[in-house]
Nucleic acid binder design. Structure first.
Lengths: 206, 206
DNA sequence: TAGATTGTTAATCGATTAACAATC
DNA sequence: TAGATTGTTAATCGATTAACAATC
């Protein structure tokens, strides 16, 4: 068992977790490496290899038990607890993110939603009341928030990122198209549907 | 110059395209491999290596001219033309996607938006009128649409995917958390903020 | 000229894949 | 037993990185 996962392994294990979670919701009890491969486009041998580095979780001729594999991967990724995140921006995108069950399914709790628009403050999005943006810093501390998700227009993204950094957050998810300048100890993950699309198109066109 | 790009190279070139597009919007003329690296977390040597496989686009001591590099990468990825995509689902997420400038910036045109809700049909989201879902197949043909984007609840995602496949589409972007079963010649790209978050958290917690 | 940054080489490491014995 | 699928080996390929001469 490796001491610390490589970036690639951690990324793949997270994807297995998502497939297992959904497969369980669909009522399945067990799954083969080939089935996981079909959903993730990760080679089946690679999947078995990734898993067998941590133990013998499968049964030959049968596959993997979904519940037990979920538990094992959560143990490896240490994501068994609850994690609090903050959402900045209660517009359409923010509302869509807050309403999605996908975070809750993985133990991620949207603990606060911020917006500068006074009309939105006090309303709830996805069961969370919108907090005045000016209270960001204190709320992040009070609620033990460790990740900030930016769902604001590109023009406001850098300012919001600066404020999240000022509040002490080290992980920012950026759903705007803006490029963000942050200190080197802060990780920015930018979600970019257009980029993925261009990349998919290349293989379609050639 | 390679005949056909590997998946990795095409993915990275798409990301450079995004950074260059945004840097240009910020008023920059030129950029160094180190700056691109800061925004993408892709190693600077790797970036220079990727680019130099296709020509000598940079100037030593200076960096890369953004306009000319944009043109070169578009040529390599063959994404200079306009591409039409269809959006299924005119709810909050669909509206957020349709309103984002990110697709237009890369020559991707949302040519049609579909929804089953009669109240939404005829309204516009992001300048595109919502079309009755039952007209999906004929519209896909008429408008020469090659990519389908699913912004529907998980419970409807498989049905919508089946209908997109039936209409002849070979690339589907899935913004729901559902797992989709499709024929093997259809590519599904699932966007998964929670998965990325779990993966980012691992490195934060260890 | 001095400083910066590219283009390129060489070495290493991780990902990918085929193949197959083990075994459920 | 027959069929299926894991766990593992071995070979190959691409990604990563450091280093540095070339040159703007």
């Amino acid at each position: 068992m490796p001491d610390r996962l490589t970036v690639g392994v951690a990324a793949r294990l997270s994807r297995y977790l998502q497939v297992l979670t959904q497969a369980k919701k669909m009522g399945k009890d067990r799954i083969s490496s080939q089935e996981i491969s079909d959903y993730t486009n990760i080679n089946a041998t690679q999947i078995r290899r990734d898993l067998s580095a941590f133990g013998k979780f499968g049964k030959r001729g049968v596959g993997y038990n979904i519940d037990s594999l979920l538990g094992e991967i959560r143990k490896i990724l240490r994501t068994q607890g609850q994690h609090n995140i903050a959402l900045v921006g209660a517009g359409r995108l923010g509302q869509a993110i807050a309403s999605s069950p996908i975070f809750a399914e993985h133990g991620i709790n949207i603990a606060a939603v911020f917006d500068t628009d006074p009309d939105k403050v006090g309303r709830t999005v996805g069961n969370v009341p919108v907090t005045e943006y000016s209270r960001l810093k204190e709320t992040v501390r009070e609620k033990n928030i460790i990740v900030g998700v930016l769902a604001v227009p590109a023009d406001n993204a850098q300012q919001a990122a600066d404020d999240l950094v000022d509040a002490g957050l080290k992980i920012i998810f950026n759903y705007s198209e803006a490029l963000l300048d942050v200190p080197s100890d802060v990780q920015v993950h930018t979600s970019n549907p257009a980029v993925e699309l261009l990349h998919a198109l290349y293989f379609h066109l050639t």
